[in-house]
């Protein structure tokens, strides 16, 4: 399953270490370069230094709201081009996620296939 063709960079923003590690493991095995941050405020720094191709952003991050971060990213012309995939345990959160400008929505629980499918769609595109 290891694929050498992709070396796209993915930033994972999720305060749940378990999920964020699992996501990066799956993505790394697939050949992506992954950075994670558990703190929402660090997102902007990380984007500047890491320059990700896709951002995976959790809706519920302690201390802040993933949708606010997304909104801010979409307002900034430096970051507005980066596709944002939002993750939430609430299947009903999809609409509010679309409203904040995110490109895609991934509902928890998801499996690796779904994750890779959606990430590759935006990383390649």
């Amino acid at each position: 399953m290891l694929s050498s063709a992709v070396s796209k960079k993915i930033l994972v923003v999720d305060d749940d270490e378990g999920i964020s590690n699992a996501i990066s493991l799956i993505l790394e095995l697939e050949g992506y370069v992954v950075e994670t941050t558990l703190k929402g405020d660090e997102t902007y720094h990380k984007i500047e230094s890491f320059k990700p191709d896709v951002i995976l952003l959790d809706v519920l991050i302690s201390g802040t709201d993933g949708r606010r971060i997304c909104h801010r990213l979409k307002q900034d012309r430096h970051t507005s081009q980066i596709p944002v995939i939002m993750i939430s345990a609430h299947p009903t959160a999809e609409q509010s996620v679309r409203d904040c400008g995110a490109e895609a929505f991934l509902a928890k629980p998801f499996n690796s296939e779904e994750l890779l499918g959606i990430v590759s769609k935006y990383a390649e595109g």
């Binding site: 378990g18 996501i23 799956i26 345990a89 629980p109 690796s112």
Partner: peptide, 21 residues
């Protein structure tokens, strides 16, 4: 139940990784 969902999700993801490996 919401709190239980997160570790479950990651457990399932790790399992898939392990299966592939």
């Amino acid at each position: 139940s919401h709190e239980l969902r997160s570790p479950l999700t990651s457990m399932k993801l790790y399992l898939e990784v392990l299966e592939n490996l």
